[in-house]
Computed example of a mutant assay.
Amino acid sequence: MLYGTMKVAIGGPLKVAFRPWVEGLENIPAEGAAILASNHLSFSDSFFLPAVLDRKVTFIAKAEYFTTPGVKGRLTAAFFKGVGQLPVDRSGGRGAGEAAIRSGIQVLESGELFGIYPEGTRSPDGRLYRGKPGGLARVALATGAPVVPVAMIDTEKIQPPGKVMPKLMRPGIRIGAPLDFSRYQGMEHDRFVLRALTDEVMYEIMKLSGQEYVDMYATAAKRQIADAAKAERDAEKAAKAALARAEKAEKAERDARAQTENSGS
């Protein structure tokens, strides 16, 4: 009931304001479990995709969205529950990943749609990064649910990381044909199978999105970008300090020269 209310309250205005275009909507199963595996460009991805679907799709969200105290916290929790988000504590490393997997399996065993971002985090630069095999592949093999590749288009331009106010423009959503991985049933503990399944899904997402593919994890790319930015700030700070020292030395030299000239006169 809450989901339906929030879908009308949020999905309707989203479609009117942004007019997202959709291709491949017929690839979403009319009933039964399925995994929607999408690229991840923006915080708004988890809202645009459900807005264009007739069926409920459940994503994983940080537990903090559901546990913040106060009126604002309660409103935030109600909002995320209403748009089909499940709380998972992601601060516990491997335990957090296991909790997310269990949540996904429960959703699928109920015959519903489960949304997942195989990259594990938003792309830092609009490129498509290597998928993490621990979540998507394990959930798919544990449930036998088909995997539907999804590509979000231009959502990073609407709401880039760190921006609160979205820009009004048309995002796109391309939905590919469901992928059947029944040939891997019973092999969920084989890391090579998990890797192969994940890479196959990422390849389909790449074809749908047209993104440049980067064979590294997005989390590692974010660290590299952060380290490069810090190095640039440090270099700029060092350059300013060196310039200040040079100016100070030059002033001292001028003062010394002036003093010498005054003494001679």
Rank of each mutant, 00 (worst) to 15 (best):
E112H: 14
L113R: 00
F114V: 03
I116W: 02
I116Q: 03
Y117D: 05
Y117L: 09
P118E: 00
P118R: 06
P118S: 04
P118Y: 11
E119L: 15
E119R: 08
G120D: 05
T121I: 02
P124A: 08
P124D: 09
D125S: 06
G126H: 11
G126V: 09
R130G: 06
R130N: 03
K132Y: 01
P133H: 12
P133F: 09
P133L: 04
G134D: 05
G135A: 12
G135M: 08
L136K: 05
A137R: 06
V139C: 12
V139F: 12
T143R: 04
P146R: 07
V147K: 01
V147H: 06
V147M: 04
V148D: 03
P149F: 11
A151Q: 04
D154E: 15
T155N: 13
T155Q: 11
E156P: 03
E156C: 04
Q159S: 10
Q159E: 00
P160E: 08
P161W: 04
P161M: 03
K163T: 00
K163C: 02
V164W: 11
M165K: 15
P166T: 12
K167H: 11
K167F: 05
L168Q: 09
M169H: 07
G172F: 10
I173L: 12
R174M: 06
R174H: 12
G176P: 05
A177H: 10
P178S: 10
P178T: 13
D180P: 11
F181S: 02
F181D: 00
F181N: 05
S182M: 08
R183A: 15
R183K: 14
Y184P: 08
Q185G: 01
Q185V: 12
G186A: 07
G186T: 11
M187A: 14
H189F: 03
D190W: 09
R191E: 14
R191A: 07
F192N: 14
V193A: 09
L194T: 03
R195E: 15
R195I: 00
A196I: 06
A196C: 05
A196G: 01
L197Q: 04
L197W: 01
T198S: 06
T198A: 02
T198K: 06
E200H: 07
E200V: 04
E200I: 02
E200S: 13
V201N: 05
M202S: 09
Y203G: 08
E204G: 02
E204A: 12
M206D: 01
L208C: 09
L208F: 07
S209Y: 07
S209I: 13
E212F: 02
E212P: 01
Y213E: 12
Y213H: 14
V214I: 15
D215P: 10
D215Q: 14
D215L: 14
Y217V: 02
Y217P: 03
A218Y: 10
A220K: 14
A220E: 15
A221V: 15
R223V: 09
Q224L: 15
Q224Y: 07
A226P: 00
D227G: 00
A228V: 01
